[in-house]
Design a protein around this nucleic acid. Structure first.
Lengths: 325, 325
DNA sequence: CTGTTAGCGCATTCAA
DNA sequence: TTGAATGCGCTAACAG
């Protein structure tokens, strides 16, 4: 592969001139530009971008931390980011960490080592303090509620949406309300738990530990939920299921066992995933794709200096009434 | 951010020595190693990886071309790749191209420009000839059947699986068989079309143009399929639906309209997606995750020189009989 | 408008 | 076991 010097020689100009035409600078005579372009074509030249990155100190690449790409929740966010990245000609480094702290740390180190210019964290296991230590190396945006830290945050209010859903169920006459979560100890799960406890207490209901059903991320988990519920001493009559795929798995399996949804169980799903419309699941749209694109956009604005300091943006949710309650 | 020179000064050694401890070379005295490590810790130093990439001529990064990450088919492959990439400490650059040729080309140029060391193409719109031109810059693996070209290929046999499914339907007494596809003109779709035509002709059946239903990628498309079918003059009584999400959308919507599946329509899905087990869809497992991980592995083996020249690997499929036929 | 020159931060040959 | 010197390929300040 030829380098810039060889192009300069072939075109009979200096490397600077070659660099200028490469970067579309003005002040290059038409004749020399032609000569350079011809040499480039002739020798099939292309820049070594690593040299450009080295000199510029940036890579036009943003990293994305998520546990698993093959979950609707994250795939949808990623899609939003990818669309945005395309606009600005940025690249996305996908880092599927499976919630392993050491992998998350490796990505943070990529930020420090200048392999990426910024970072979006969809979900994490590392404590905020550890993330914070890397904020000096480049913008970091979290897709969860974070305030008063050098980290940006784009999120949707899990607390308020849970509250809304619980009140809706309560108004429909349900008193035994349970809910599912993915990871037990994630920041979002903790917010939801708090909303569950607070809201039920306020209403005069009873939050119950055994109605908090962990480990529900995918459709199979929803299917397995039926048996988990049936094995409880006392069963809830309504469920908030965080993820419409999970809800769909539950509803389908429950019905195939002769249980009624709604009826035996009222269900509210989350994310307004396409399946929820088809099955008619009442759900809460938390605008994942928009959160993803906005997260990328913030990173980009911070990299390019249009935005200074961390920002926090809350997205409002949309309650969608269908036929599962 | 300090550089290697400053570390050398702080530690009272030469940059070479610093470089040696950075790269875990032997022949560094314990005392100097200590001094260097202390200086690194003290100044909070880390390497600028772009300089390393420049000098080494590689980035430990593999690009992935796919149209949309939020489709099960691609998310699953990506997951396989990501798992493999983790093993070798490689990074993955996700390039969601929406089948736009100019975006695909941009990724190929990244290969040429040394921003990525290799490339996996899950699905494409560019012709093979154009891809081939970039093969000299680094290993390219396609997830489709490609032979006798400087491109590697890991694929699952769409022809044989379609054939198998059609014969199965035929044996069950179905004579009016149609099928869905995503893009009309993709290489895989063409293979399937050929299998459809060949197999039905051999059996004495009638392949029909109006029973080839394009534009089916997601669950909503499956739901919409019901009306499309009902509006046909003559309807098929059996369908191959490429993607269990699509099949699920179809089955659910059909049933909610009072149609029977199986009964009014027999359905065979594809991919053995989790939803197919829950709904009981007869399907063909094409081992997407394995294809993804093997694709990455091949790129990696070729980058590291363990493998020379393009390889072609076919994965066998698995027919899974459930209750939709 | 153009070219000379000095780095960007690091790995590596070569000589000691 | 160590270090000086060279260069990876490119950009940009500077001088003309």
């Amino acid at each position: 592969m030829p380098n810039i010097k060889q192009i300069a020689e072939a075109a009979g100009v200096s490397v600077t001139t070659v660099s200028r035409v490469l970067n579309h600078h003005p002040y290059v005579s038409e004749s020399k530009r032609k000569a350079v372009e011809e040499a480039i074509a002739l020798l099939n030249y292309s820049r070594n971008m690593n040299a450009v990155h080295l000199i510029k100190g940036s890579t036009q690449t943003v990293g994305v931390i998520l546990p698993r790409i093959n979950l609707f929740y994250f795939a949808r966010m990623m899609e939003g980011m990818a669309q945005e990245a395309l606009k600005y000609n940025y690249k996305l480094m996908l880092c599927q960490t499976a919630y392993r702290p050491e992998e998350e740390r490796r990505v943070l180190e990529m930020l420090r080592d200048k392999q990426i210019d910024g970072l979006v964290i969809c979900s994490r296991s590392l404590p905020l303090d550890q993330l914070e230590a890397y904020a000096e190396y480049g913008p970091i945006v979290l897709c969860e509620m974070v305030k008063d830290r050098p980290l940006s945050s784009v999120y949707f209010d899990h607390y308020a949406s849970f509250q809304k859903a619980i009140i809706y169920l309560w108004d429909k006459g349900h008193r035994k309300i349970g809910f599912t979560i993915g990871r037990r100890n994630s920041p979002s799960s903790r917010r939801r738990l708090k909303a569950y406890t607070d809201t039920l207490r306020t209403l005069g209901g009873e939050p119950r530990e055994d109605w908090i059903l962990g480990g529900c991320s995918d459709i199979e988990d929803g299917a397995a939920l039926v048996d988990r519920l049936l094995s409880l001493k006392e069963q809830p009559d309504a469920l908030l299921i965080t993820g419409d795929q999970v809800a769909a798995g539950f509803i389908f399996t429950a019905r195939s066992r002769g249980l009624q949804v709604p009826g035996d169980y009222a269900v509210i799903g989350f994310d307004n995933q396409p399946i929820s419309e088809i099955i008619g699941i009442t759900t809460i749209d938390n605008r994942l794709s928009e959160i993803g694109s906005r997260a990328f956009e913030i990173v980009h604005e911070q990299i390019s200096g249009q935005l200074n300091g961390p920002v926090t943006e809350e997205f409002s949710f949309r309650f969608i009434e269908r036929n599962s309650v």
